[in-house]
Design a protein around this nucleic acid. Structure first.
Length: 823
RNA sequence: GCCGAAGUGGCGGAAUUGGUAGACGCGCUGGACUCAAAAUCCAGUAUGGCUCACCCCAUGUGCCGGUUCGAGUCCGGCCUUCGGUACCA
């Protein structure tokens, strides 16, 4: 019989909703499991196959845990602010709020058709004032603690469109709309001081159960390096004499190489550049600065790009030997890393070597390379040379000694530096959370009082191109009296980065309508951290770091418990289409409705899970979907065939193997082996192999009719249980065909595996000669070498290869392999 | 460029700690059922070779090299593809 998916799916979806099967009781905290999926961005492309791949299997895991007796909370919401809705508005004139609300409505309908166990009472969307009010509140708390501050920072600016561009809108340095060369423009912007938490964010990684690669990426992103800061005095050659009081502080990871510092490089943006540059070098320096304006950081720091730079005309004094060294500026030094200035040691640094070679600057080795060393810069360990009092010391000892020396002289000290930068949260856009700050000419920046929140985003705004921020053009919004002095003032015209929204949303889900605070502490104290967080690896270094930072901040102001937001993390892989990530702009979105209408939700979900390892994703292809369709139909047919069974017999929890017929014993073993396998595999998100195991079992159940009715029922009960997390509608249907009237998920249940049924009496082992397979033989489990040896040498295929040879060695690994080494 | 991954039959993939490479599925080939088709069921299916009867022989997990009785798995060096690179989310 053809599995009637449409009918069965709507039947059970209605049943679940009616009986409120998935409503979470937060008062039950024993075996609580907060299962969170990264919420959805409600784009115009609606729900595509990539979303299904994320949410379907993830829900299956949550259902599996529920059946193992966990009290699972699985919510879903909408990450509703952001750039795409605003761009859509610029193109079409449709207001971001209207398009977003419409998209959310459509997406919710599609989400429901997956058949996930979302608790819809916990729904939230970030563009609601009740939600973003708390972004503003969070901003004010950070501000109070000195962790939100304003400074100048560059933005991409299109001179033609007169607008700020996101990095994504810049292609090859040009505006994606009009092709005009994009320039960098400095604006005053808000930052959150995440760097204050750098060390804790690094240390905390050791306490959470995340994929190693993700932790590694965060470690590298935080980029801790231990070195020293050293002050160099500036020496001006002419006119002003040598009496400069200016000091340039550099950061180096190799203070031991100070004697090899033959020149200095400042970032072109370094604040001292203008002051230091001598009159005769002004023109060159200015035109160099101009020439690198449109380069991205990636281009600037590329190690294959030819080095560029110019001499400023000024010199610095190397404090260890009082030598005059020239000060250059070059784009490979970034103002945002370290102190924006380096001492260049070409002997021990590849980039410095390359630069020195190109501009004929002196190179002094201060670490002795081994005799056979043929390269240029030498980065490895070795004894110090040309370094006066450091000579002969190896790198670590030399570092210690020079740091001590610098500290004594008061011109430097050992320092830890992080690559991590503060979080720039200002966006010159409309569709986001307004920043709760008022700029007053007299009082400066004045925070809005908490009682005034939310500062609502006005609907009536000209969000079209031009100018720094759309909100600045709304007179009614932007003009306001200073809360302190009453002078006519202006609101901050910017909105917040949407990563602010997602940095604390997991708290809000627990009670989205809570009005007395950012979240309901009485629930959060028991339900945070999130036990399982599922989302894309593309968030490894930004969202996942920001959320950890905000969690720690909320802890420090006394409202959050614990140190980390997400205890365990799993990434779903990316489903690409024609080699590219699915997106509306690329026009390669695969619509799941195409397949769900034909095969049904469960078949599609199973197919996505069967495609491969969950964290790998893959390129989309519908080849093979008929495989999971057959699987579902075969199960459905099987249960229909035996649908009266429950009226005729009952099954025990456990059987004694010896009491069963040969056929019964076989089925009993296979059921238990599969149950064990599926349990293990699903628990680790290895759905593909779990499904393969069930398919294999199904192939073995062909002769079920020859077993006793008891064993038949025993087998079918367990099959329904193990299939239902992965195919929930089918599972319910099969369960009801076995005479049950309540949901299979309602009373959590997962059968205990009978361990005694897992062990087979004989095992097949491989026999190799010189590592090549020559035969396989069946031996009793755990056979001793002597027993196996006899069998091995009675095999003609083995003796054939050992006959004229000398046996050198025999290796026997119990239950696995027998290898004979011959000469 | 830098950081992080991944490369296995015609295709998706399996092999969980170094121990029988190709489980499971798709596709394909042949057969059964049928007036016929679809569906379903059964058998075969890495490549090459032979006396293609075989439980035969050789080769084979991106490329080159190494460690080991034994390498898809470990080590060194490449190549290709993908994710991120701080304003897409």
């Amino acid at each position: 019989m053809r599995y009637p998916h449409a009918e069965i799916e709507s039947k059970w979806q209605e049943f679940w909703e009616e009986k409120q099967v998935y409503k979470t009781d937060f008062s039950k905290i024993e075996k609580k499991l907060y299962h969170l999926n990264m919420f959805i961005y409600p784009s115009g492309a609606k729900l595509h196959t990539g979303h299904w791949y994320h949410y379907g299997p993830s829900d299956s895991w949550a259902r599996y845990k529920r059946m193992k007796g966990f009290n699972v909370f699985e919510p879903m919401g909408y990450d509703a602010f952001g750039l795409p809705a605003e761009n859509y508005a610029i193109q079409t004139g449709i207001h971001p709020q209207d398009s977003t609300i419409k998209n959310i409505k459509d997406i919710k309908e599609q989400l429901k058709r997956i058949g996930c166990m979302y608790d819809w009472q916990a729904e939230l969307m970030t563009c609601a004032p009740e939600y973003y009010k708390w972004n503003q509140w969070l901003f004010l708390q950070l501000y109070k603690k000195g962790l939100a501050y304003r400074k100048k920072a560059p933005v991409n600016w299109c001179p033609k469109d007169q607008t700020v561009l996101a990095n994504e809108q810049v292609h090859d340095g040009k505006c994606e709309r009009c092709g005009t060369e994009v320039i960098q423009r400095n604006l005053s912007q808000w930052f959150f001081k995440i760097t204050d938490y750098a060390e804790e964010l690094l240390q905390g990684l050791d306490t959470i159960n995340w994929p190693e690669k993700t932790k590694l990426m965060q470690r590298n992103w935080i980029g801790k390096s231990i070195g020293a800061e050293v002050d160099f005095r500036v020496y001006l050659p002419s006119g002003t004499g040598d009496g400069s009081n200016d000091i340039i502080r550099i950061f180096t990871t190799r203070p031991d190489t100070l004697f090899g510092a033959t020149y200095m490089v400042l970032a072109p943006e370094h604040p001292l550049v203008e002051k230091l540059t001598t009159a005769d070098h002004k023109y060159k320096v200015e035109s160099y600065k101009e020439s690198i304006k449109s380069l991205t950081e990636i281009e600037r720091t590329s190690t294959v790009k030819e080095k560029t730079g110019v001499f400023t005309g000024a010199y610095a004094i190397n404090p260890v030997n009082n030598k005059k060294i020239p000060i250059w500026i070059a784009d490979y030094v970034l103002q945002t890393y370290g102190t924006g200035a380096i001492m260049a040691v070409p002997g021990q640094d590849e980039r410095d070597w390359e630069f020195a070679e190109k501009f004929n600057l002196p190179i002094i080795r201060t670490v002795q390379p081994p005799d056979e060393f043929a390269g240029k810069a030498y980065l490895e360990d070795g004894p110090a040379i040309n370094s006066d009092f450091l000579d002969g010391l190896f790198v670590e000892d030399a570092k210690k000694k020079i740091n001590h020396w610098l500290e004594q002289k008061g011109i430097g000290k050992a320092t830890v530096n992080y690559r991590l930068r503060d979080w720039l949260i200002s966006r010159q856009r409309y569709w986001g959370t307004p920043i709760p700050i008022i700029h007053c000419e007299k009082c400066g920046e004045v925070p809005v009082s908490e009682a005034e929140l939310p500062i609502e985003l006005p609907y009536d705004v000209d969000f079209k191109l031009g100018g720094e921020s759309p909100l600045a053009r709304n007179e009614k919004y932007i003009n306001v009296k200073c809360p302190k002095c009453g002078t006519n003032s202006k609101r901050d015209p910017d909105t917040m980065d949407t990563f602010v929204d997602s940095s604390w949303y997991y708290f809000r889900f627990l009670n989205p309508n809570y009005s007395a605070g950012i979240f309901d502490k009485s629930i959060a104290d028991n339900w945070v951290p999130v036990d399982m967080y599922v989302g894309g690896a593309e968030h490894a270094t930004m969202h996942l770091l920001y959320a950890r930072f905000i969690h720690k901040f909320l802890r420090d102001i006394g409202i959050a418990k614990g140190h980390e937001p997400f205890q365990t993390l799993v990434h779903q892989g990316t489903i690409t289409n024609a080699g590219a990530k699915m997106s509306k702009s690329k026009g390669n979105v695969v619509n799941p409705d195409l397949f769900t209408s034909k095969f049904g939700s469960d078949v599609f979900r199973l197919y996505l899970m069967f495609m491969g390892p969950y964290d790998m994703g893959g390129d989309w292809s519908d080849k093979g979907i008929s495989g999971t369709d057959r699987f579902v139909n075969r199960i459905y047919d099987l249960f229909n065939e035996y649908k009266d069974l429950a009226n005729q017999t009952t099954a025990k929890e456990k059987y004694d193997l010896n009491s069963l017929s040969e056929q019964g014993k076989f089925i009993y073993r296979r059921i238990n082996q599969t149950l064990q396998k599926v349990d293990e595999e699903v628990n680790h998100f290895r759905f593909n192999t779990a499904i393969a195991a069930m398919m294999e079992l199904l192939n073995n159940l062909k002769d079920l009719s020859t077993c006793s009715k008891e064993i038949q029922l025993y087998a079918l009960q367990r099959l329904a249980i193990m299939v239902s997390p992965l195919a929930p509608h089918l599972g319910e249907e099969c369960w009801s065909l076995l005479g049950n009237t309540s949901s299979i998920f309602e009373k959590p249940f997962w059968y205990e595996v009978d361990k005694s049924a897992l062990i087979e009496d004989t095992i097949s082992i491989a026999v190799q000669v010189n590592g090549k397979l020559r035969a396989t033989i069946d031996v009793p489990l755990n056979s001793e070498q002597e027993v196996v040896k006899k069998l091995v040498f009675s095999e003609e295929r083995v003796t054939k290869h050992t006959a004229d040879k000398t046996i050198v060695k025999e290796i026997y690994v119990k239950n696995k392999i027998y290898n004979i080494v011959v000469k």
